[in-house]
Amino acid sequence: MSVATLQRPATSLRRTKLLTTALLAVFLIYTLVPLVYLLIAATKDDEGLFNSFGLWFAPQFHLFGNIRALFTFQGGIFTRWLINTAFYSVTSAVGATLLASAAGYAFAKFRFLGRDFLFALTLGAVMIPQTALAIPLFLLMSKVGLVNTPWAVILPSLVNPLGVYLMRVYAEQSVPDELIDAARIDGAGEGRIFATIALRILSPAVITVLLLSFVATWNNYFLPLVMLESSHLFPLTIGLADWYEVSSAGGGGQALFPLVLTGSLVSILPICALFLAMQRFWQSGLATGSVK
């Protein structure tokens, strides 16, 4: 890679390479075992779970049976949860990204009264424990009658202070003032400059914030737990946690274990696929924030 690496003898380099890769491989096993366990467990029925080794398949391959059971159990409520989760995540991510882009752009490219104060306020919010906020938020939402509606989950998720920070840093580095001035001289309005020029340059950061907000909502547990009561409004995390608690308590005598495991697998697949597909973007986007 670097000059000196090339100068060192080939055999020692090979040995170092082997050692590094081996060390990383050990941690890789630790990282992957739970996921492999989940993948294999999802192919077993209740009996297979109890009577076969965790990291190997049971004699009966039950994955498709489990999936069928998952999507038909309790009148197909799992499909409902899947749709809810997708809806909450998409609306929150798009909204949060738009708001954060506009705010970050303003912080980066304009000088105005109160800029430092407002930015400090935004950053300070990162420090507030999410969960310390959820209970006051619940009280507020119940005052205005929004508890147990999708709004109670979506509205708070639209505010992403970290996204504003990332956008500001990225805009400062990548959107040249000259370009904005040139567009102004050409008579473009500020809204149009932002929408057609700045947003395009900001697209790596936009995708990062989009992805991070999406994942944050997809994976959120505490906020919907506090806000939602009706199971037809639940996202996947709450629904699965419910089934899991019922099955762990041994309630109902129902064989819920395979459903919980298969449901877990189904709900992490979209998000893993999304991360894999978008890795170029979020890696560079996260880099922006940490370097500053």
């Binding site: 941690f27 890789l28 990282t31 992957l32 739970p34 996921l35 366990y37 989940l38 994942v215 997809w218 994976n219 547990y221 996947l236 995390t237 699965l240 946690a241 899991y244 919980v260 877990s264 709900s267 992490i268 998000i271 893993c272 999304l274 991360f275 894999l276 890795q279």
Partner: peptide, 17 residues
């Protein structure tokens, strides 16, 4: 990418596994 994967798993599901 593999090291990052657990972050994509909801903490509730990670805990459950």
């Amino acid at each position: 990418i593999a090291f990052f994967l657990p972050y994509a798993v909801p903490s509730v599901i990670g805990a459950l596994i």
